[in-house]
Each structure stands twice: as C-alpha cells, then as structure tokens.
Amino acid sequence: MKKLLVIGLMMSNFVFAQTLSRDTADIEVIHENAHERIKVKPDPLLKKGQIFVFFGWNRGAFGNSDIHFTGNGYDFQLNNVSARDKPTKLGIVYIDPSWFTVTQYNFRLGYFIKDNLALVLGIDHMKYVMKQNQTVDFSGTISDPKYAAMVQNGQVNLSDEQFLTFEHTDGLNYENLGLEKYKNLINRKNIDLVWSYGVGIGVMFPKSNIKLFGNERSDRFHVAGMGTDLRTSLNLVFWNHWMARLEGKVGYINMWDIKTTLNNKPDKAQQDFVFGQVLAGVGYTFNTKRNK
C-alpha cells in the first residue's frame, strides 16, 4: 500500500510538472508574441494634428543670371552675371537671438494635415552677392557719357565698383509654403529617423543693397517676385520631441521688380536664376504620441 501511494505521488508530481512546463511554455510564447506586437508601433512623427518648429542655418549657391536694368536715361542688360552667398563667420552671432538675422538662417513651422503629410510655412533668409571681380557682356543703351564710356567692346568691367554693386544681403528672403510627405525609416525607443520630400512656392521679399551709377544705395524691403522649390530632408527625433534636421533644396527664383534707387522713380532691375541650398538646425515637435 505504501509503495502504491509513493508511486501515485511520483506520477502526480510528474504530470503536474509537465502541465506546469507546458503552461510556462505557453506563457513564454504569449509573452514573446506580445513583445513582438509591442515592437510594431506607428511612426512617431506621422500623426495628424502634430506641429513642429525648426530653426537653422544655410549655405546657398546660385546660377548665373542676366540682369536687366531700366530707368531714366538707361535701358540695358548685363549677361551671365555670377554670384555667391555670404556666410557669417562662426561665433556667438549664431546663438545670440539679438543677432540672428545677420546669419543665413531658416525657420520652419509645420502642421500635419494627414498622418504623413504636412503643410510647412518657411522663411529662407539667404544672401546673394554679385561677384565684383568679373567682366560681363553688355547690351542696351546708357545716356550718361561717363558710364557709357565704361562699356568697351560690348563688355563692362565691374571690379572697381563704379558702375554697379549688387547684393541681396539683408537678404534674399524667400517666404514660402510647402507641402511635404514624410516616411519613417528607423523607429526605436528614444530615436527615430524620418525622411521627407516635397515642393514649395512663395514670394521673394528681399532687402536689396544696390548702387548703380553712383546713386545713393537702395536698401529697403520690397516684394520683388516669386520662387518655387523642390526639397528633401532627414529628421532625427530624440525622446519623442527634440529634432535635428538636415535639408536640401533646389529651386527657381524670378524677380521682376527689384528696386535700384531709394526714390519713387520707376528705376528697377529684373533677374531670374536657379538656386541650391543646404541647411541644418534643430527643432521641437509638439503633440507627438507613441504607443506604450
């Protein structure tokens, strides 16, 4: 009898152990499946109603352009004029809010109208400087004999600054509205990588610094034309909110009403050119939700 009792206890322990083992295995499988489900999370940036702000700095490049000048006593064009940007040297000016307009800066305010589509209001404060040390082709007429004499064999040398200085350095302001589509590339616990691409269109609101024929320098803000662009960016988001953004864009600018004098005379210049821009900076995202 005692032997049967012992054998029965041993068999019950064996069965119980097997059942517990299976249950434990099932729990582990369930836990593992739950863990897998947790890993599949929606993209953190791709949320309707989300807002982000961004501030950064840029470097720009500009294609050669023909600049047409008209006014009292002159109507001429300078062909194939080259230009460059004007970056500020590294220093405290880049982090001092009272001096931020001195740099080539960018601002973005974005709102997601869909889970992966955002409207982005942007300000691109670029700087455009005509290269002074160049000789360009000339066509047209100038009534003032002093400046007409500077044209030799259909060309004019701009290096001495007597004929013309021409800049949009306060600056070449592109106020634009863009439509951007976003796609998540990497989604981790505390870091996400998101790629975007889109298009933009806007007005050109430069403060042009122009001195033509020795006149007082024109230096005022004015709506001068329009621009359009294609853009793409990579966005790193840390801890759900902080963002580092690297953006590139190419575009076309047409300015048909550039003020060349300070008075109300009909003096103006026209030019159009392509541009490229690379910018980087930091931002912050609001209303970012993630599944736990």
Rank of each mutant, 00 (worst) to 15 (best):
V93S: 15
W57D: 06
L179Q: 05
T228D: 09
G202W: 05
N215F: 03
N291V: 15
G56F: 08
P145L: 08
F100W: 13
G225I: 07
M1Y: 07
S21Y: 05
Q18K: 11
D115T: 06
E247A: 13
K292T: 11
T165W: 05
K48C: 02
F14E: 10
T261W: 03
N240E: 11
N13R: 09
G200V: 00
K39R: 15
N157D: 15
R22M: 12
Q132W: 02
R22G: 08
A17K: 00
N215A: 12
G110F: 05
K127A: 03
K47D: 09
K265P: 00
Q132K: 15
W99C: 10
V151W: 08
F76S: 03
F14G: 04
I253Y: 11
I210A: 00
V156N: 03
A224N: 07
K41D: 08
Y128H: 04
A280M: 15
T70D: 02
M11G: 02
D267A: 10
V278I: 13
N116H: 07
V282W: 11
D85P: 09
W256C: 04
G56R: 06
N157G: 09
N235A: 10
F54L: 06
I191E: 14
P97T: 07
M10Q: 03
S208K: 05
S159Q: 11
W256I: 01
L185S: 04
A25H: 07
F286R: 06
I67E: 05
P87S: 15
P42E: 10
L262S: 09
T24E: 15
G91N: 07
T101G: 02
K292I: 11
Y74S: 00
K211I: 04
G73E: 04
V194P: 06
E36H: 12
G251E: 05
A25D: 08
V151Q: 04
F286W: 02
F76V: 03
K89D: 15
F166L: 09
G71N: 02
D75W: 04
L179A: 06
F100N: 10
W57C: 05
T70H: 07
F163V: 03
F52Y: 15
S98W: 09
